[in-house]
Amino acid sequence: MSHLRVPLGTWIRTLLIAIAAVVMTAAPVFAAEIEIAVGAPERVSVGQDVEIKALLHQDGAPLEGAEVAVTYQAAIAGESGRVELATAVTDATGTAIMSFQQRADENGEMQVVYLGPDDDPVKPHTFTIAVEAGGEQLYQQQTGVRIPFVNGTLLIVVISGVWFLIALAAIYLVRVGMAGRITDRPSSEDGSIWISVALAAAAIVTAVGMVIVFVRAPVSNTHITDPDGYDRTIVNYLDVSYPYEGFGLDDDSDARTGDPLVDGSVLYFQYACAACHGLTGQGAVVGGALVDEIGSLSSFADDV
């Protein structure tokens, strides 16, 4: 069987030829890889306009005309996926600038992804941006009529006036007790004014407490401190990635009538979208318009 023995040199030559063949065959592929570099701020606050710069190179040269998007991972109604924040097309220098307003008070994992026109898979560039919660409340009712003197301050005056009178009556009762005290009587027969003192104290404390609650009420036309410096109530912004699971449907046939409009309506309410985004999805005080995102209740039903 020795005539079948292959010399080591032959093995080495064959291996080198094979490697050379593979390298030659795959070279164009490696040469075509698109590289994404990202320039993004490390820290932003809610309400701030954010600019993400993506630089694309192919084969070491700037890639022009490529569409990219910035996305983040989110979940809604038990469904999770990536939410697209902005898109842009690279210029002659291979640069794409994507802008969006920071709405969520957290972003999770963000990515700049290549959208084409090349169909070859391109590894997205993953990064994070630290978000400072609080900041600007993005959705506020814009309509309203400001009537001079008819405002929260007037209400405070009225409430204070009422409670002043209640406290005054209670103080009169304290004085009733004090006026009836007889010092030379045995103390065991003495009454007490503590009950009226307690009433007066309760009235005064409640009155003051109500005014304090009132004054602290956040961001409203009755708020008498500086709204810009106010940061107490957590406001949920659009795009926040709370994994809302909902209660589900007792009978899911409600959402399977075959009429996509009806199905979409049921789901839209069942998953409480309407609570923030309004009955028609066109925006409300808390949540903005979803019309662009979900298209219509029919397409929403399809998506869900």
Partner: peptide, 25 residues
């Protein structure tokens, strides 16, 4: 009764004060 009666003796000053409290309320 002793506590809640606030040492009520029905003196003129007590009557006057109680009258004011009741009127306000």
């Amino acid at each position: 009764y002793r506590t809640l009666a606030l040492d009520w003796r029905g003196t003129p000053s007590q009557l006057k004060l109680l009258g004011k409290a009741i009127t306000i309320m």
